[in-house]
């Protein structure tokens, strides 16, 4: 190892630390991926709310299928797209529990669109964490419903064409029309300010779900540098330049 990478961590220099609820399992996510950051935020929120003994997470099919390996709570791994159906029954049968789903764009907004919409429309008292990185990460970078126009993926080698594939799916905007949803927000974890905002949003969503206010929907516009074939730094910049204009950050609904 060369000298320049030798970093000594001193307790007095620590600003952030590993949340108590994240496990010691080595994460399978690519370096630069947003999943790890969002996992940490969820773990911190659960810990700070003191609900680690009464929270059930639902992981999807996609890169975050193994989310259950990293946060030390009870978890179920759902069939592709069906997380909101699982969460519906979990919450209705266990109203005292905090139930949340953690889903990617393919899972939530393609194959699971129906389950997502109907859970939101029924106003299930759950929180939905939606990771939107505009691509199918796990299966090797295919087009997602949220893929941007012109964006190259394994199934849109010349870029997404509207005449062939339609438009990027703005499901958060669509869900604002449903009376069952009380909180819809779009966040990103591209810089420390936004990380803190995203954490606040997750906490607010969890609190509203526990208070029986209906469904909370927290979208996180995220990077997939492997799928986008960019370095982590380039991916962050590309997201700010291309994703944030199509998927603008901020609250879409808060009642």
């Amino acid at each position: 190892m060369s000298e320049e990478f030798k970093v000594e961590i001193k307790p007095e220099n620590l600003v952030y630390q590993k949340p108590a609820l994240t496990t010691d399992a080595t994460m399978h996510y690519c370096p630069g991926c947003s999943h790890g950051t969002v996992h940490s935020l969820i773990a911190e929120v659960i810990e700070e709310m003191g609900i680690q003994d009464s929270t059930i997470g639902v992981s999807p099919v996609g890169c975050s299928v193994f989310a259950y390996n990293y946060i030390d709570i009870d978890w179920a791994e759902a069939a592709h797209g069906r997380a909101c159906a699982l969460a519906t029954a979990m919450k209705r049968l266990n109203p005292g529990k905090m139930v949340f789903t953690y889903q990617g764009d393919g899972d939530l907004a393609a194959i699971g669109t129906g389950e997502t919409i109907h859970a939101c429309n029924r106003g299930e008292n759950i929180a939905i964490i939606f990771i939107n990185n505009a691509i199918y990460g796990m299966t090797g970078g295919q087009m997602a419903p949220t893929t941007l126009v012109g964006m190259k993926t394994a199934t849109t080698p010349e870029g997404r064409r509207v005449d062939l594939h339609g438009y990027p799916f703005k499901i958060a905007e669509m869900l604002t029309h449903l009376d069952g949803v009380s909180y819809i927000t779009r966040q990103s974890v591209n810089n420390p300010v936004n990380v803190r905002r995203a954490k606040k949003a997750i906490r607010k969503g969890f609190e509203k779900a526990m208070a029986g206010k209906g469904t909370s929907f927290i979208e996180i516009v995220a990077t997939c540098n492997s799928g986008w074939k960019l370095s982590p730094v380039e991916a962050n910049r590309w997201m700010e330049e291309h994703m944030h204009p199509v998927y603008p950050l901020g609250d879409l609904k808060d009642i």
Partner: peptide, 13 residues
């Protein structure tokens, strides 16, 4: 599809 996955969620608890 939703119904059977609700069973999955409920049974899991």
């Amino acid at each position: 599809i939703a119904a059977i996955n609700m069973l999955y969620g409920g049974a899991a608890t």
